[in-house]
Amino acid sequence: MSGLDDPHQLDASAFHRTVHSFEFWFETVEGYLHGREYGVSPATREVELSEHQRQSLITILCNYCVGETAALDASSGMIGFAPDRLSKIFLSTQVVDEGRHLEVMLHRLAQLGIRDPEAEIPQRANRSLLKFKERLLDFVHASDWEAAVLAQNVILECMEYTVFRYHAAHADPITSEMLSGVVSDERRHMGFGENDLGRRLIAAPHAHERLLKIKRELDPLILDTFSETMGELGIEPASRPDLASEYLGAVARLGFQS
């Protein structure tokens, strides 16, 4: 094995250049998306869902579409005021990821019989998630980098990462495989957010108090969305995945008290 292929031998700047690059992204997504149309292998078969299961899945997917649209709108907007070129390049890969997520979810909704998702999504959207989206886009329109990274790449991505992983483990085979590919993308988005914000808070600790206020405003919105999604999945509160292990763990590492 060549020492050049050992990632742990890279210096910090070479590591950052590598993982933020389109080259890295191309070779990475090829590993888990190649040969999977709309994120699903040809061999994966549909199973019959009861009408109750179908309706629940449609509602959940409509809300996932709200979250993915928020991330698509926000990440594309953030490119314009990203503080450095590596961040702009990384965000451009995130835009492609978010566009793909939205596409595979709309495709799944069509498979479930939804003919007009533009009409269906607003009817089934969680009010707290819509409010979260509105606040996220406020930060983007204000070119507020720290607040936008916190809201999108830490709070929203951590919630999606937790929910999608849990849902993938319990969903029908097609939804499960589609979500697994999305989860693999979310790792990068979430990691980018925590690491970028972590570096910024070290350089500008005074930003901490302002971001804590934003976090306190957004927490109830994201926790309500999480709770409603778990309810749609039919998961009793005692059996729900531990959001603390992802979201609260990430914010604790960044020094935010819950």
């Binding site: 990632p7 590591f15 993982v19 933020h20 990068r188 990691g191 980018f192 925590e194 690491n195």
Partner: peptide
Amino acid sequence: RSRVELRAGDRVYCMPCMSR
């Protein structure tokens, strides 16, 4: 994973989530 046994003080990278 590393090619050698890990010890306290080592620096490793998580490429999937871009963490040092």
